[in-house]
């Protein structure tokens, strides 16, 4: 089975399952309608989900993904308490600035997940990606240093290793 067909099969099964979950199925007609809608989705957007062969064991990658998710949720909790503290404080203790960090990830999906995680973790917000896709500009609400290497370690380092295991 080629890569595109595998991607199409996966999209078809996934969208049909979502349909079954969203409509509480009572009779045969709804199942048929779901099959038709899933087929339409597959024709339009089927080949974009899986675009390259992945190396590495599938179970190990799922395990890394779960580890990443737990770490991400914990960081997000911390981010929210941090913002709540700043907002309640009468004098607004902020020291904002835009800094630059480097990334070693190459795949588009991995970079997207990394930037989204950076946006939702304490004090940082992704502003832009350089055209060569190896530098990320980040707005930091509490700048600790302006050194690129050091910032790479503090901001991106905690997610980058796990994301390398998941995506590459």
């Amino acid at each position: 089975m080629t890569l595109q067909n595998r991607s199409r099969l996966f999209v078809f099964i996934f969208s049909f399952l979502v349909w079954l979950a969203l409509t509480s199925v009572r009779d045969m007609e709804e199942v048929v309608a779901g099959l038709i809608v899933a087929a339409l989705v597959t024709i339009v957007a089927g080949k974009f989900l899986i675009t390259s062969e992945k190396s590495g064991h599938i179970l190990r990658r799922i395990f890394s993904a779960i580890k990443y998710l737990i770490k991400f949720l914990w960081e997000m909790m911390k981010a929210n308490f941090h913002v709540a503290f700043i907002v309640i404080h009468p004098y607004l203790p902020i020291k904002p600035g835009i800094v630059k960090i480097k990334t070693k990830l190459t795949k588009d999906s991995a970079i997207t997940v990394l930037t989204n995680s950076i946006t939702l973790t304490p004090g940082t917000l992704t502003v832009d990606l350089s055209p060569e896709k190896n530098e990320i500009y980040i707005h930091w609400i509490d700048v600790l240093s302006t050194d690129v290497e050091k910032n790479t370690k503090t901001i991106g380092g905690k997610f980058e290793k796990l994301l390398t295991e998941v995506f590459e």
Binding site: A79, V83, V87, L92, P96, T119, L125, I141
Partner: peptide, 18 residues
């Protein structure tokens, strides 16, 4: 409360999403 667009975006995005 926060002073400029970027800081407002930080606080609002994180907290309201969560």
């Amino acid at each position: 409360r926060l002073p400029d667009v970027y800081n407002r975006l930080q606080a609002a995005t994180k907290c309201v999403t969560f």
